[in-house]
Nucleic acid binder design. Structure first.
Length: 467
RNA sequence: GGACAGGUGGCGGAGCGGUUGAACGCGCUGGUCUCGAAAACCAGUAUGCAUUUCGGUGCAUCGUGGGUUCGAAUCCCACCCUGUCCGCCA
């Protein structure tokens, strides 16, 4: 959520920000409603002040007179009643006016709130303008020694690569058919070495971020209240991406909940509605959680394999810290470098992409995607085999106070003022998607797969997966 | 599935129709005392919005929304949430 004060002061910044992000939101209308609302509130406040003042003066009198009314003789009643109704007349009139203003406000506020939740955070000035992921800008890339970016996998390694689909089939690591039988399209069942490797990657990710970088290991609810989805900024925009445990069809307590698409929701919601102690900054959390995504609107895209699926597991990192842009930028770089360490440790070639304004999503001021090289992806080369392509495996967001404002997550500065925190989040590792580059990049000419050193301790020392 | 209880400030906990934005306790901040600390004592200590001659001032907020009333934390209705006991399941 954006700061309405800032919006009033510099609406252009937000209008241009929404435009750059390709988000259609009627900011002029919001400003208009905001002005109306403020006018109404001001009028109402004045009336209330008067009502209160009168109430203090005449209230006790009325009470006393009404008491007398009970014990007094009939002949004196009319006079008493007249005095009471005289005293009651003014506050009653005020009450009616205040009530009318309430009704006017009730007309405005739903739309006012709705648009407010839709206004995106303007992108930072140094984010390149663009309309889609095609306009993202590569920052840098890395590959293990011996890998030549100008050559194909076959030229680099001396044999034609299999796709991950072929590999998991040949090595019996995934059962897609039964996955689909049980759970429908985009479902899978990891088996044997597939499941072991999946768990190894997640365990490695948790170990790395917690032990090497001091993030606090934390579990999160993956079934959450709507407020957590709104607070973290996934709603209203992402509602069609989200599974809903529906109270209409299955009434009863605990039935109106949503399945989270990322551990970020649970982690960031931990401190919602809190004024956290600034001494704890920066607050660094890591979790591993199952993530659920409906992938609505992605029909026909990446239908085969482990790339785009409804359910996966992810190690996620978040940082909450004081409201300072420079600090946020530093954290952002740190969180990205943690991922780079991990990918380098697993010897996976990757590149960093600066996402353009059109690809940022509504809540980010800046976002860096990390893409691993996947030999089995992409268009067909002349030999009829995939030419290889980068595939997004990580996404690092810098949100400033946009998310914490929604979550009502604050701290006190030196002067005791409450301030909304800044937040950031980044994938540590998401599996099984990350298994795709691991399998494809570490495959051998004989069809076996060499397990990266760093994962072996989590697989009982196993060095190689072969049929 | 059945039977209840309850939602008040950073926390605990009063209040159940009239200066109650809210007693009391704890915590926190400042001060006195002390060589220093603890204890004791004194003072202060909610959030949001608006307004301001930056000293304040006004309004709202006791789960949420509506209602009754001249007046609601207090009464009524609906909803949300939390907890307890029994049953069931792991």
């Amino acid at each position: 959520m954006i700061d309405l004060k800032q919006l009033r002061e510099s609406p252009e910044r937000f209008i241009q920000g929404a435009e750059a992000k390709n988000i259609d939101v009627d900011i002029d209308r919001l400003l208009e409603l905001d002005q109306q609302r403020r006018d109404l509130l001001q009028k109402q406040e004045t009336l209330r002040a008067e009502q209160k003042k009168i109430g203090k003066e005449t209230g006790p009198q009325i009470g006393k007179l009404k008491g007398q009314l009970k014990s007094v003789e009939d002949s004196q009643r009319p006079e008493l009643e007249a005095r009471i109704s005289e005293l009651e007349a003014r506050p009653a009139a005020l009450k009616q006016q205040i009530h009318d203003l309430d009704e006017s406000l009730a007309v405005i506020e739903p739309e006012w709130k709705k648009i407010q939740l839709q206004v995106p955070q303007p992108p930072d000035d140094d984010v390149p303008r663009g309309s889609s992921s095609d306009d993202n800008v590569e920052i840098r890339r890395w590959a293990p020694e011996g890998w030549d970016w100008d050559k194909s996998f076959e030229e680099n390694r001396g044999f034609a690569p299999k796709t991950h689909l072929e590999l998991v089939h040949d090595l019996n690591m995934v059962d897609f058919e039964r996955g689909v039988k049980v759970a429908g399209s985009r479902s899978y069942v990891l088996t044997g070495a597939g499941m072991r490797l999946h768990q190894a990657v997640l365990a490695f990710g948790m170990q790395h971020i917690c032990e090497k970088h001091g993030f606090r290991a934390t579990s999160v609810p993956v079934l959450v209240r709507e407020q957590a989805m709104v607070g973290t900024g996934f709603f209203p925009g992402g509602i069609e991406q989200t599974y809903h445990i529906d109270s209409d069809s299955t009434p009863g307590p605990g039935q109106d909940l949503y399945l989270t698409g990322t551990g970020e929701v649970g982690l960031m919601s931990l401190h919602s509605d809190e004024i956290v102690d600034a001494d704890q900054f920066p607050m660094k959390y890591a979790t591993v959680s199952t993530c659920f995504r409906r992938e609505a609107g992605a029909a026909g895209k990446d239908t085969a394999g482990l790339y785009r699926i409804h359910q996966f597991d992810k190690v996620e990192q978040v940082i909450i810290d004081k409201a300072d842009e420079a600090t946020s930028r530093t954290h952002h770089e740190t969180m990205i470098s943690i991922v780079e360490e991990l990918l380098q440790a697993m010897q996976l070639p990757y590149r960093l992409l600066q996402c353009c304004t059109g690809d940022l999503g509504s809540k980010n001021a800046d976002m860096i995607d990390i893409e691993c090289w996947i030999p089995g992806r992409g268009d067909e080369a002349s030999n009829g085999r995939p030419a290889g392509e980068f595939g997004e495996t990580h996404s690092a967001s810098r949100l400033y106070d946009f998310q914490c404002r929604r979550l009502n997550l604050r701290y006190r500065d030196k002067d005791g003022k409450t301030i909304f925190c800044h937040s950031l989040n980044n994938t540590v590792v998401a599996s099984p998607r990350i298994l795709i580059p691991i399998l494809e990049m570490h495959q051998q000419a004989d069809g076996s797969i060499i397990i990266p050193d760093v994962l072996r301790p989590f697989m009982g020392g196993c060095e190689r997966i072969s049929s």
